[in-house]
Design a binder for these strands. Structure first.
Lengths: 234, 234
DNA sequence: ATTGGTAATATGTCTAGACATAATGAGGCA
DNA sequence: TGCCTCATTATGTCTAGACATATTACCAAT
Protein backbone atom coordinates (compact mmCIF):
# COMPACT_ATOMS: atom_id res chain seq x y z
CA UNK A 1 0.00 0.00 0.00
CA UNK A 2 1.48 3.34 -0.99
CA UNK A 3 2.13 5.54 1.97
CA UNK A 4 -0.02 8.67 1.92
CA UNK A 5 2.96 10.64 3.19
CA UNK A 6 5.03 9.64 0.21
CA UNK A 7 5.83 12.20 -2.37
CA UNK A 8 3.72 12.27 -5.49
CA UNK A 9 5.15 10.31 -8.38
CA UNK A 10 4.76 11.29 -12.00
CA UNK A 11 2.30 8.39 -12.24
CA UNK A 12 0.13 9.89 -9.52
CA UNK A 13 0.16 13.16 -11.36
CA UNK A 14 -0.64 11.52 -14.67
CA UNK A 15 -3.56 9.71 -13.08
CA UNK A 16 -4.79 12.87 -11.42
CA UNK A 17 -4.65 14.86 -14.64
CA UNK A 18 -6.34 12.03 -16.50
CA UNK A 19 -9.09 11.95 -13.88
CA UNK A 20 -9.67 15.67 -14.18
CA UNK A 21 -9.97 15.33 -17.93
CA UNK A 22 -12.33 12.40 -17.62
CA UNK A 23 -14.69 14.13 -15.25
CA UNK A 24 -14.47 17.26 -17.36
CA UNK A 25 -12.92 19.53 -14.80
CA UNK A 26 -10.60 20.18 -17.69
CA UNK A 27 -12.73 20.02 -20.78
CA UNK A 28 -11.81 19.66 -24.43
CA UNK A 29 -9.58 22.41 -25.81
CA UNK A 30 -9.08 23.86 -22.38
CA UNK A 31 -5.62 25.14 -21.58
CA UNK A 32 -4.25 23.76 -18.36
CA UNK A 33 -2.05 25.63 -15.93
CA UNK A 34 1.59 25.97 -16.82
CA UNK A 35 4.09 23.44 -15.57
CA UNK A 36 5.42 25.72 -12.84
CA UNK A 37 1.94 26.29 -11.47
CA UNK A 38 1.06 22.62 -11.58
CA UNK A 39 4.36 21.80 -9.90
CA UNK A 40 3.55 24.26 -7.15
CA UNK A 41 0.04 22.91 -6.66
CA UNK A 42 1.24 19.32 -6.58
CA UNK A 43 4.18 20.25 -4.42
CA UNK A 44 6.78 18.68 -6.64
CA UNK A 45 9.51 19.68 -9.07
CA UNK A 46 8.68 20.88 -12.54
CA UNK A 47 10.48 17.92 -14.09
CA UNK A 48 8.00 15.58 -12.48
CA UNK A 49 5.02 17.42 -13.91
CA UNK A 50 6.84 17.62 -17.21
CA UNK A 51 7.21 13.88 -17.39
CA UNK A 52 3.52 13.34 -16.69
CA UNK A 53 2.47 15.88 -19.31
CA UNK A 54 4.94 14.59 -21.87
CA UNK A 55 3.67 11.06 -21.57
CA UNK A 56 0.05 12.15 -21.81
CA UNK A 57 1.01 14.05 -24.92
CA UNK A 58 2.64 10.98 -26.43
CA UNK A 59 -0.53 9.08 -25.71
CA UNK A 60 -2.53 11.62 -27.64
CA UNK A 61 -4.49 12.99 -24.68
CA UNK A 62 -2.85 16.39 -24.56
CA UNK A 63 -1.41 18.79 -27.04
CA UNK A 64 1.48 21.06 -26.18
CA UNK A 65 3.03 24.04 -27.85
CA UNK A 66 5.77 26.24 -26.54
CA UNK A 67 4.50 29.49 -25.22
CA UNK A 68 0.90 28.56 -26.08
CA UNK A 69 0.73 26.01 -23.31
CA UNK A 70 -0.86 22.63 -22.77
CA UNK A 71 -4.42 21.87 -23.82
CA UNK A 72 -6.75 18.91 -23.78
CA UNK A 73 -7.15 17.45 -27.24
CA UNK A 74 -10.67 18.08 -28.50
CA UNK A 75 -10.84 15.19 -30.92
CA UNK A 76 -8.85 12.50 -29.19
CA UNK A 77 -7.03 11.29 -32.27
CA UNK A 78 -5.56 8.71 -30.04
CA UNK A 79 -2.91 6.39 -31.24
CA UNK A 80 -3.18 2.84 -30.07
CA UNK A 81 -0.26 0.55 -29.53
CA UNK A 82 -0.53 -2.89 -31.02
CA UNK A 83 1.91 -5.59 -30.17
CA UNK A 84 3.14 -7.13 -33.38
CA UNK A 85 3.05 -10.77 -32.42
CA UNK A 86 5.65 -13.40 -33.16
CA UNK A 87 3.61 -16.42 -34.10
CA UNK A 88 5.66 -18.96 -32.13
CA UNK A 89 5.44 -16.91 -28.98
CA UNK A 90 1.78 -16.21 -29.55
CA UNK A 91 0.94 -19.89 -29.78
CA UNK A 92 3.11 -20.95 -26.88
CA UNK A 93 1.71 -18.23 -24.65
CA UNK A 94 -1.74 -19.59 -25.36
CA UNK A 95 -0.52 -22.88 -23.92
CA UNK A 96 -0.52 -24.74 -27.23
CA UNK A 97 2.25 -26.69 -28.93
CA UNK A 98 3.83 -24.78 -31.77
CA UNK A 99 4.69 -26.55 -34.98
CA UNK A 100 6.01 -25.34 -38.29
CA UNK A 101 5.76 -26.78 -41.78
CA UNK A 102 7.36 -25.69 -45.02
CA UNK A 103 4.79 -26.06 -47.78
CA UNK A 104 6.72 -24.91 -50.80
CA UNK A 105 9.97 -23.26 -51.73
CA UNK A 106 10.79 -21.84 -55.14
CA UNK A 107 12.81 -19.16 -56.81
CA UNK A 108 11.09 -16.58 -58.92
CA UNK A 109 11.40 -13.02 -60.14
CA UNK A 110 9.88 -9.86 -58.75
CA UNK A 111 7.39 -9.67 -61.61
CA UNK A 112 5.77 -13.01 -60.72
CA UNK A 113 2.89 -11.18 -59.06
CA UNK A 114 1.84 -7.68 -60.00
CA UNK A 115 1.76 -6.43 -56.42
CA UNK A 116 5.46 -7.27 -56.00
CA UNK A 117 6.32 -4.57 -58.48
CA UNK A 118 5.74 -1.89 -55.89
CA UNK A 119 7.75 -3.73 -53.29
CA UNK A 120 10.89 -5.16 -54.89
CA UNK A 121 13.13 -3.88 -57.65
CA UNK A 122 11.90 -4.92 -61.10
CA UNK A 123 12.96 -8.40 -62.12
CA UNK A 124 14.95 -9.00 -58.93
CA UNK A 125 15.46 -12.69 -58.06
CA UNK A 126 13.34 -13.81 -55.14
CA UNK A 127 12.89 -16.80 -52.92
CA UNK A 128 9.23 -17.61 -52.56
CA UNK A 129 8.10 -19.59 -49.51
CA UNK A 130 4.79 -20.93 -48.35
CA UNK A 131 4.75 -21.93 -44.70
CA UNK A 132 2.20 -23.10 -42.22
CA UNK A 133 2.25 -22.42 -38.50
CA UNK A 134 0.29 -24.85 -36.38
CA UNK A 135 -1.08 -24.73 -32.85
CA UNK A 136 -1.69 -28.17 -31.37
CA UNK A 137 -1.44 -29.68 -34.87
CA UNK A 138 -4.16 -27.44 -36.23
CA UNK A 139 -3.47 -24.76 -38.84
CA UNK A 140 -3.13 -21.39 -37.21
CA UNK A 141 -1.46 -19.07 -39.67
CA UNK A 142 -0.42 -19.30 -43.30
CA UNK A 143 2.66 -17.44 -44.40
CA UNK A 144 3.34 -16.26 -47.93
CA UNK A 145 6.84 -14.84 -48.03
CA UNK A 146 9.23 -13.40 -50.57
CA UNK A 147 12.90 -12.87 -49.77
CA UNK A 148 15.19 -10.85 -52.00
CA UNK A 149 18.05 -13.05 -53.14
CA UNK A 150 19.87 -9.99 -54.39
CA UNK A 151 19.93 -8.51 -50.91
CA UNK A 152 20.14 -11.79 -48.99
CA UNK A 153 21.94 -14.41 -51.10
CA UNK A 154 22.52 -16.49 -47.95
CA UNK A 155 18.83 -17.32 -48.05
CA UNK A 156 19.59 -19.70 -50.92
CA UNK A 157 21.52 -21.90 -48.51
CA UNK A 158 18.84 -21.95 -45.84
CA UNK A 159 16.51 -24.92 -46.05
CA UNK A 160 13.64 -23.40 -44.06
CA UNK A 161 12.32 -26.91 -43.51
CA UNK A 162 12.56 -26.74 -39.75
CA UNK A 163 13.50 -23.18 -38.90
CA UNK A 164 10.86 -20.70 -39.99
CA UNK A 165 11.91 -17.79 -42.19
CA UNK A 166 11.04 -15.27 -39.52
CA UNK A 167 13.40 -16.84 -37.05
CA UNK A 168 16.06 -17.20 -39.72
CA UNK A 169 15.73 -13.56 -40.65
CA UNK A 170 15.95 -12.40 -37.06
CA UNK A 171 19.31 -14.08 -36.75
CA UNK A 172 20.56 -13.19 -40.23
CA UNK A 173 19.46 -9.62 -40.64
CA UNK A 174 20.19 -6.51 -38.67
CA UNK A 175 17.42 -4.43 -37.20
CA UNK A 176 15.85 -2.67 -40.07
CA UNK A 177 13.02 -0.47 -41.22
CA UNK A 178 9.64 -2.10 -41.27
CA UNK A 179 6.21 -1.28 -42.62
CA UNK A 180 3.28 -3.18 -41.21
CA UNK A 181 -0.23 -3.20 -42.63
CA UNK A 182 -3.43 -4.85 -41.57
CA UNK A 183 -5.94 -5.69 -44.25
CA UNK A 184 -8.79 -8.01 -45.11
CA UNK A 185 -8.46 -10.45 -47.99
CA UNK A 186 -10.71 -13.09 -49.47
CA UNK A 187 -9.18 -16.56 -49.23
CA UNK A 188 -7.68 -18.01 -52.41
CA UNK A 189 -5.58 -21.07 -53.10
CA UNK A 190 -3.25 -22.08 -51.60
CA UNK A 191 -4.48 -20.42 -48.42
CA UNK A 192 -7.83 -22.18 -48.66
CA UNK A 193 -6.40 -25.69 -48.62
CA UNK A 194 -3.76 -24.95 -46.03
CA UNK A 195 -6.03 -23.23 -43.54
CA UNK A 196 -9.04 -25.34 -44.52
CA UNK A 197 -11.36 -22.46 -45.35
CA UNK A 198 -13.79 -21.78 -48.16
CA UNK A 199 -12.68 -19.69 -51.14
CA UNK A 200 -13.64 -16.06 -50.66
CA UNK A 201 -13.83 -16.38 -46.89
CA UNK A 202 -12.76 -13.08 -45.29
CA UNK A 203 -9.37 -13.43 -43.65
CA UNK A 204 -7.46 -11.03 -41.49
CA UNK A 205 -4.04 -10.49 -42.97
CA UNK A 206 -0.93 -8.81 -41.72
CA UNK A 207 1.54 -7.68 -44.34
CA UNK A 208 5.06 -6.72 -43.45
CA UNK A 209 7.83 -5.31 -45.61
CA UNK A 210 11.37 -4.95 -44.35
CA UNK A 211 14.14 -2.73 -45.71
CA UNK A 212 17.79 -2.32 -44.99
CA UNK A 213 19.63 0.69 -46.31
CA UNK A 214 16.95 1.37 -48.87
CA UNK A 215 16.77 -2.17 -50.27
CA UNK A 216 13.76 -4.37 -49.79
CA UNK A 217 14.76 -7.52 -47.94
CA UNK A 218 11.51 -9.36 -47.54
CA UNK A 219 7.77 -9.09 -47.84
CA UNK A 220 5.39 -11.37 -46.05
CA UNK A 221 1.65 -11.85 -45.83
CA UNK A 222 0.38 -13.68 -42.78
CA UNK A 223 -3.15 -15.07 -43.14
CA UNK A 224 -5.13 -15.81 -40.01
CA UNK A 225 -8.10 -18.03 -39.40
CA UNK A 226 -11.58 -16.55 -39.69
CA UNK A 227 -12.58 -14.75 -36.50
CA UNK A 228 -9.03 -13.63 -35.72
CA UNK A 229 -8.74 -10.10 -34.43
CA UNK A 230 -6.10 -7.74 -33.16
CA UNK A 231 -7.13 -5.95 -30.03
CA UNK A 232 -5.85 -3.19 -27.85
CA UNK A 233 -7.21 -1.19 -24.95
CA UNK A 234 -6.50 2.28 -23.76
CA UNK B 1 23.12 22.14 -39.15
CA UNK B 2 23.74 20.99 -35.58
CA UNK B 3 26.93 22.42 -34.19
CA UNK B 4 29.51 19.76 -33.53
CA UNK B 5 30.43 21.55 -30.36
CA UNK B 6 26.94 21.27 -28.98
CA UNK B 7 26.26 18.86 -26.20
CA UNK B 8 24.77 15.53 -27.09
CA UNK B 9 21.02 15.39 -26.78
CA UNK B 10 19.10 12.32 -25.72
CA UNK B 11 18.05 12.03 -29.37
CA UNK B 12 21.66 11.84 -30.49
CA UNK B 13 22.27 9.14 -27.95
CA UNK B 14 19.15 7.24 -28.99
CA UNK B 15 20.25 7.38 -32.60
CA UNK B 16 23.75 6.27 -31.74
CA UNK B 17 22.54 3.32 -29.69
CA UNK B 18 20.10 2.39 -32.42
CA UNK B 19 22.89 2.52 -34.99
CA UNK B 20 25.09 0.25 -32.88
CA UNK B 21 22.27 -2.23 -32.61
CA UNK B 22 21.57 -2.09 -36.33
CA UNK B 23 25.14 -2.72 -37.34
CA UNK B 24 25.39 -5.42 -34.71
CA UNK B 25 28.07 -3.85 -32.59
CA UNK B 26 25.55 -4.67 -29.89
CA UNK B 27 23.96 -7.91 -30.94
CA UNK B 28 20.76 -9.60 -29.80
CA UNK B 29 20.65 -10.44 -26.10
CA UNK B 30 23.81 -8.56 -25.44
CA UNK B 31 23.95 -6.54 -22.24
CA UNK B 32 24.99 -2.98 -22.81
CA UNK B 33 27.12 -0.92 -20.45
CA UNK B 34 25.40 0.49 -17.40
CA UNK B 35 23.95 3.98 -17.50
CA UNK B 36 26.82 5.52 -15.56
CA UNK B 37 29.35 4.09 -17.97
CA UNK B 38 27.39 5.20 -21.01
CA UNK B 39 26.99 8.64 -19.50
CA UNK B 40 30.73 8.81 -18.97
CA UNK B 41 31.48 7.68 -22.51
CA UNK B 42 29.00 10.10 -24.04
CA UNK B 43 30.13 12.84 -21.70
CA UNK B 44 26.68 13.66 -20.41
CA UNK B 45 24.56 13.23 -17.32
CA UNK B 46 23.02 9.89 -16.44
CA UNK B 47 19.52 11.30 -16.80
CA UNK B 48 20.16 11.96 -20.46
CA UNK B 49 21.25 8.40 -21.12
CA UNK B 50 18.32 7.21 -19.03
CA UNK B 51 15.87 9.05 -21.21
CA UNK B 52 17.33 7.55 -24.37
CA UNK B 53 17.29 4.03 -22.94
CA UNK B 54 13.81 4.41 -21.50
CA UNK B 55 12.37 5.47 -24.83
CA UNK B 56 14.10 2.67 -26.68
CA UNK B 57 12.63 0.30 -24.12
CA UNK B 58 9.15 1.70 -24.68
CA UNK B 59 9.64 1.16 -28.38
CA UNK B 60 10.44 -2.47 -27.77
CA UNK B 61 14.09 -2.33 -28.86
CA UNK B 62 15.63 -2.83 -25.45
CA UNK B 63 14.74 -4.73 -22.34
CA UNK B 64 15.72 -3.48 -18.92
CA UNK B 65 15.73 -5.05 -15.51
CA UNK B 66 17.03 -3.58 -12.31
CA UNK B 67 20.34 -4.96 -11.32
CA UNK B 68 20.42 -7.21 -14.39
CA UNK B 69 21.00 -4.31 -16.74
CA UNK B 70 19.93 -3.36 -20.24
CA UNK B 71 19.96 -5.79 -23.11
CA UNK B 72 19.04 -5.81 -26.76
CA UNK B 73 15.80 -7.66 -27.33
CA UNK B 74 16.46 -10.87 -29.22
CA UNK B 75 13.05 -11.21 -30.80
CA UNK B 76 12.01 -7.66 -31.40
CA UNK B 77 8.40 -8.05 -30.30
CA UNK B 78 7.99 -4.51 -31.32
CA UNK B 79 4.81 -2.66 -30.67
CA UNK B 80 3.58 -0.48 -33.46
CA UNK B 81 1.58 2.67 -33.02
CA UNK B 82 -1.50 3.01 -35.14
CA UNK B 83 -3.37 6.23 -35.35
CA UNK B 84 -7.03 5.55 -34.77
CA UNK B 85 -8.55 7.72 -37.45
CA UNK B 86 -11.56 9.97 -37.13
CA UNK B 87 -13.41 9.43 -40.37
CA UNK B 88 -14.24 13.08 -41.01
CA UNK B 89 -10.67 14.15 -40.52
CA UNK B 90 -9.40 11.25 -42.57
CA UNK B 91 -11.55 12.19 -45.54
CA UNK B 92 -10.85 15.90 -45.31
CA UNK B 93 -7.12 15.33 -45.04
CA UNK B 94 -7.29 13.34 -48.26
CA UNK B 95 -8.69 16.48 -49.88
CA UNK B 96 -12.19 15.11 -50.35
CA UNK B 97 -15.54 16.52 -49.27
CA UNK B 98 -16.94 14.76 -46.24
CA UNK B 99 -20.61 13.95 -46.06
CA UNK B 100 -22.67 12.02 -43.59
CA UNK B 101 -25.97 10.19 -43.95
CA UNK B 102 -28.16 8.53 -41.34
CA UNK B 103 -29.49 5.31 -42.81
CA UNK B 104 -31.60 4.00 -39.99
CA UNK B 105 -32.33 4.62 -36.36
CA UNK B 106 -34.20 2.25 -34.08
CA UNK B 107 -34.44 1.17 -30.49
CA UNK B 108 -33.78 -2.41 -29.55
CA UNK B 109 -32.58 -4.60 -26.72
CA UNK B 110 -29.15 -5.99 -26.05
CA UNK B 111 -30.23 -9.47 -27.08
CA UNK B 112 -31.09 -8.39 -30.64
CA UNK B 113 -27.82 -9.85 -31.89
CA UNK B 114 -25.99 -12.64 -30.11
CA UNK B 115 -22.64 -10.85 -30.15
CA UNK B 116 -24.09 -7.98 -28.13
CA UNK B 117 -24.51 -10.28 -25.17
CA UNK B 118 -20.81 -10.09 -24.42
CA UNK B 119 -20.77 -6.34 -24.74
CA UNK B 120 -23.85 -4.88 -23.08
CA UNK B 121 -25.80 -5.91 -20.01
CA UNK B 122 -28.47 -8.48 -20.83
CA UNK B 123 -31.71 -6.97 -22.12
CA UNK B 124 -30.45 -3.41 -21.79
CA UNK B 125 -32.26 -0.89 -24.04
CA UNK B 126 -30.15 0.24 -26.95
CA UNK B 127 -30.25 2.76 -29.73
CA UNK B 128 -29.25 1.13 -32.99
CA UNK B 129 -27.88 3.32 -35.77
CA UNK B 130 -26.76 2.70 -39.31
CA UNK B 131 -24.75 5.51 -40.81
CA UNK B 132 -22.83 6.12 -43.97
CA UNK B 133 -19.77 8.32 -44.31
CA UNK B 134 -19.06 9.59 -47.80
CA UNK B 135 -16.03 11.06 -49.49
CA UNK B 136 -16.86 13.17 -52.51
CA UNK B 137 -20.35 11.65 -52.56
CA UNK B 138 -19.04 8.13 -52.73
CA UNK B 139 -19.51 5.65 -49.90
CA UNK B 140 -16.39 5.45 -47.79
CA UNK B 141 -17.30 3.83 -44.51
CA UNK B 142 -20.38 2.15 -43.11
CA UNK B 143 -21.07 2.47 -39.42
CA UNK B 144 -23.12 0.04 -37.36
CA UNK B 145 -23.49 1.48 -33.90
CA UNK B 146 -25.24 0.62 -30.65
CA UNK B 147 -25.59 3.13 -27.85
CA UNK B 148 -26.72 2.16 -24.37
CA UNK B 149 -29.86 4.09 -23.50
CA UNK B 150 -29.48 3.03 -19.90
CA UNK B 151 -26.11 4.73 -19.66
CA UNK B 152 -26.82 7.57 -22.09
CA UNK B 153 -30.54 8.41 -22.06
CA UNK B 154 -29.76 11.76 -23.72
CA UNK B 155 -29.09 9.81 -26.90
CA UNK B 156 -32.84 9.43 -27.30
CA UNK B 157 -33.13 13.16 -27.89
CA UNK B 158 -30.34 13.32 -30.43
CA UNK B 159 -31.50 13.06 -34.01
CA UNK B 160 -28.18 11.98 -35.53
CA UNK B 161 -29.50 13.07 -38.90
CA UNK B 162 -26.79 15.64 -39.47
CA UNK B 163 -24.34 15.20 -36.63
CA UNK B 164 -22.69 11.79 -36.64
CA UNK B 165 -22.84 9.71 -33.49
CA UNK B 166 -19.09 9.85 -33.06
CA UNK B 167 -19.10 13.61 -32.95
CA UNK B 168 -22.11 13.60 -30.67
CA UNK B 169 -20.43 11.20 -28.30
CA UNK B 170 -17.22 13.19 -28.18
CA UNK B 171 -19.17 16.18 -26.93
CA UNK B 172 -21.54 14.24 -24.67
CA UNK B 173 -19.29 11.72 -23.02
CA UNK B 174 -16.22 12.12 -20.91
CA UNK B 175 -12.98 10.51 -21.87
CA UNK B 176 -13.42 6.88 -21.20
CA UNK B 177 -11.93 3.46 -21.52
CA UNK B 178 -11.82 2.07 -25.00
CA UNK B 179 -11.12 -1.26 -26.63
CA UNK B 180 -10.28 -1.28 -30.31
CA UNK B 181 -10.13 -4.35 -32.51
CA UNK B 182 -9.29 -4.87 -36.13
CA UNK B 183 -10.89 -7.80 -37.89
CA UNK B 184 -11.95 -9.08 -41.29
CA UNK B 185 -15.61 -9.72 -42.01
CA UNK B 186 -17.53 -10.91 -45.03
CA UNK B 187 -19.98 -8.31 -46.27
CA UNK B 188 -23.66 -8.89 -45.45
CA UNK B 189 -26.74 -6.71 -45.79
CA UNK B 190 -27.07 -3.83 -45.12
CA UNK B 191 -23.36 -3.22 -45.62
CA UNK B 192 -23.48 -4.64 -49.13
CA UNK B 193 -26.07 -2.21 -50.44
CA UNK B 194 -24.66 0.79 -48.62
CA UNK B 195 -21.07 0.30 -49.69
CA UNK B 196 -22.02 -1.27 -52.99
CA UNK B 197 -20.07 -4.48 -52.58
CA UNK B 198 -20.85 -8.13 -53.25
CA UNK B 199 -22.08 -10.32 -50.41
CA UNK B 200 -19.20 -12.17 -48.81
CA UNK B 201 -16.63 -9.66 -50.02
CA UNK B 202 -13.84 -9.40 -47.44
CA UNK B 203 -14.02 -6.09 -45.60
CA UNK B 204 -11.65 -4.57 -43.13
CA UNK B 205 -13.55 -3.71 -39.98
CA UNK B 206 -12.66 -1.72 -36.92
CA UNK B 207 -14.70 -2.44 -33.81
CA UNK B 208 -14.66 -0.12 -30.84
CA UNK B 209 -16.27 -0.50 -27.45
CA UNK B 210 -16.33 2.33 -24.94
CA UNK B 211 -16.89 2.12 -21.19
CA UNK B 212 -17.36 4.63 -18.44
CA UNK B 213 -17.09 3.53 -14.84
CA UNK B 214 -17.59 -0.08 -15.77
CA UNK B 215 -20.69 0.43 -17.92
CA UNK B 216 -20.69 -0.08 -21.64
CA UNK B 217 -21.62 3.13 -23.39
CA UNK B 218 -21.37 2.23 -27.02
CA UNK B 219 -20.16 -0.36 -29.48
CA UNK B 220 -19.47 0.38 -33.10
CA UNK B 221 -18.34 -1.53 -36.15
CA UNK B 222 -16.85 0.52 -38.94
CA UNK B 223 -16.75 -1.25 -42.32
CA UNK B 224 -14.30 -0.06 -44.92
CA UNK B 225 -14.21 -0.50 -48.66
CA UNK B 226 -12.34 -3.46 -50.11
CA UNK B 227 -8.63 -2.75 -50.37
CA UNK B 228 -8.57 -0.58 -47.26
CA UNK B 229 -5.59 -1.10 -45.01
CA UNK B 230 -4.12 0.33 -41.84
CA UNK B 231 -0.43 0.96 -42.11
CA UNK B 232 2.39 2.01 -39.86
CA UNK B 233 6.15 2.19 -40.15
CA UNK B 234 8.85 1.89 -37.60
C1' DA C 1 -4.90 48.01 -42.27
C1' DT C 2 -0.83 45.50 -42.86
C1' DT C 3 3.70 44.30 -41.95
C1' DG C 4 7.80 43.56 -39.27
C1' DG C 5 10.48 43.40 -35.24
C1' DT C 6 10.95 42.31 -30.37
C1' DA C 7 10.24 41.05 -25.63
C1' DA C 8 7.82 37.83 -22.85
C1' DT C 9 6.69 33.22 -21.84
C1' DA C 10 5.76 28.13 -21.72
C1' DT C 11 7.71 24.20 -23.02
C1' DG C 12 12.05 21.30 -24.12
C1' DT C 13 16.10 19.56 -22.43
C1' DC C 14 20.29 19.06 -19.59
C1' DT C 15 23.04 18.71 -15.14
C1' DA C 16 24.52 16.92 -10.73
C1' DG C 17 23.24 14.78 -7.01
C1' DA C 18 20.19 12.00 -4.06
C1' DC C 19 17.38 8.23 -2.44
C1' DA C 20 14.19 4.19 -3.63
C1' DT C 21 13.55 -0.35 -5.30
C1' DA C 22 13.99 -4.68 -7.55
C1' DA C 23 16.79 -8.46 -8.59
C1' DT C 24 20.94 -10.94 -8.52
C1' DG C 25 24.45 -13.72 -6.81
C1' DA C 26 27.42 -15.07 -3.14
C1' DG C 27 27.90 -17.01 1.25
C1' DG C 28 26.22 -19.53 5.07
C1' DC C 29 23.31 -23.04 6.93
C1' DA C 30 20.63 -27.20 7.03
C1' DT D 1 22.71 -30.53 -2.69
C1' DG D 2 19.40 -27.26 -1.83
C1' DC D 3 17.46 -23.32 0.46
C1' DC D 4 17.53 -18.91 2.72
C1' DT D 5 19.53 -14.31 3.79
C1' DC D 6 21.68 -10.27 2.71
C1' DA D 7 24.81 -7.06 0.58
C1' DT D 8 25.47 -5.34 -3.91
C1' DT D 9 24.20 -3.23 -7.99
C1' DA D 10 21.67 -1.24 -11.97
C1' DT D 11 17.71 0.87 -12.92
C1' DG D 12 13.70 4.04 -11.47
C1' DT D 13 12.48 8.36 -10.01
C1' DC D 14 12.80 12.97 -7.84
C1' DT D 15 14.89 17.68 -6.95
C1' DA D 16 16.52 22.33 -7.91
C1' DG D 17 18.38 24.99 -10.98
C1' DA D 18 19.91 26.37 -15.61
C1' DC D 19 19.83 27.48 -20.44
C1' DA D 20 17.63 26.69 -25.22
C1' DT D 21 13.94 27.36 -28.37
C1' DA D 22 9.54 28.00 -30.40
C1' DT D 23 5.70 30.97 -30.44
C1' DT D 24 2.83 34.43 -29.16
C1' DA D 25 1.36 39.10 -28.33
C1' DC D 26 2.25 43.59 -28.58
C1' DC D 27 4.05 47.72 -30.40
C1' DA D 28 5.98 50.48 -33.99
C1' DA D 29 6.62 51.65 -38.71
C1' DT D 30 4.98 51.44 -43.23
Amino acid sequence: MPDANDRLTYRDIKADIMARIQNRRWGPDQVLPAEVELAASYGCARATVNRALTELTDEGILERRRKAGTRVRAAPLRAARFEIPIVRRQIEEAGAVYDYRLISRAECRADAEPRLGGVFAAGEPLLHLHCLHLADDRPFQFENRFISLAALPQARDAAFDHLGPNEWLVSAVPYSEVEVSFLALGAEAPVTTQLGVEPGQALFCMERTTWWEGRTLTNVRLFHLPGYRMTTRY
